[in-house]
Computed example of a mutant assay.
Amino acid sequence: MSAKGWCLGIAVCTGVWLVQSGARDVTPPVPSAAEAFAAGPREHTDAAADPLPPAAPLRLRIPDIEVDTPLTGLGLDRKRSLEVPPAEYRNLAGWYRDGTPPGARGTAVVAGHVDNAGGPAVFYALGALRKGHRIEVLRADGRTAVFTIDAIEVYEAGDFPDRRVYGARDRAELRVITCGGGFDKKSGYRGNVVAFAHLIGVRTTTATTGGTANAGPGE
């Protein structure tokens, strides 16, 4: 998929709120240098859990930034760039349905808008996350895949590292992507914010009680 093309596609339908409102100081959080891979991992990195069988994701939750969003399937457009969720649905993210489902072996990709004409959207605060924060993906098989964040990085559109972000992995990994990297009123957002995460545990909904049985960390 074309990362640069995907970013340009998002920039066309986001940033409208900033332009219309004249907002200059109200911009999405930018990841600090301490949260990048170059700064090194946390002192205690959570061990990777065994990958799950493939299953469609239904919802994504990031408690530390109060994200709780349904997930829609995304394909590729005519230019072989990743589609984006409809701009009018502020609290909606999408996953690349022809790729790896979150929790399965490989690199799963989730994308969402940072804002729309009405204001901040689902991943507006993505850049405020830190290493060790949790991402939860509720799946159609009744399992919740729990990921820990390894790094948050920001890239200019022309320097987006496709292989680093989208490349295949032997364990279950997740990328959550939105626009960011500065804003220009004429051209929109200049790049992307990317959260890198790996699977550390699973929660399973019990049929009898409606509660959860834990397998691994991630409560």
Rank of each mutant, 00 (worst) to 15 (best):
D68Y: 04
A117S: 11
F37R: 15
A23Q: 13
A33S: 12
V122R: 01
A39E: 10
R164D: 15
E35L: 01
G201C: 06
D25H: 06
A213F: 12
I135Q: 00
Y124G: 03
G94C: 08
L76K: 07
A140C: 11
V16G: 03
D64L: 07
H113Y: 10
R42I: 14
V122I: 15
P41V: 14
G5F: 00
N116E: 04
A195R: 02
L126C: 09
Q20C: 10
P102E: 02
H113T: 08
T27H: 07
K4C: 02
R164I: 10
A55Y: 03
P57A: 08
L71C: 03
E173G: 00
F37G: 03
D170V: 09
P41K: 09
G99W: 09
D25K: 07
H44P: 01
T144W: 00
D141L: 05
V16S: 05
S81Q: 11
G112W: 01
L174Q: 05
Y189S: 06
F147Q: 02
D150A: 15
T14H: 03
S2E: 08
L76E: 08
R169S: 14
T206S: 13
D159E: 15
T206P: 07
P101K: 02
A23G: 10
A49L: 09
G180I: 01
T14N: 12
R139F: 02
R80D: 13
G180V: 05
P86R: 07
S81Y: 00
V193L: 08
P161V: 13
P63I: 15
G201L: 08
A34M: 11
D46I: 11
G75E: 07
A39Y: 10
G132E: 10
K131D: 08
A38Q: 14
G22H: 08
A145M: 07
R97H: 06
D50M: 11
G211F: 09
G201N: 06
L82M: 13
V165K: 05
V122H: 02
D159G: 04
P51S: 15
V30Y: 03
L82V: 05
S187P: 00
T178F: 05
P101E: 06
L126H: 03
Y166W: 13
T212S: 07
P57K: 04
V26G: 02
L82E: 00
L129P: 01
N214L: 13
F196A: 05
C179W: 00
G218Q: 04
L18Q: 09
A11T: 02
G211P: 11
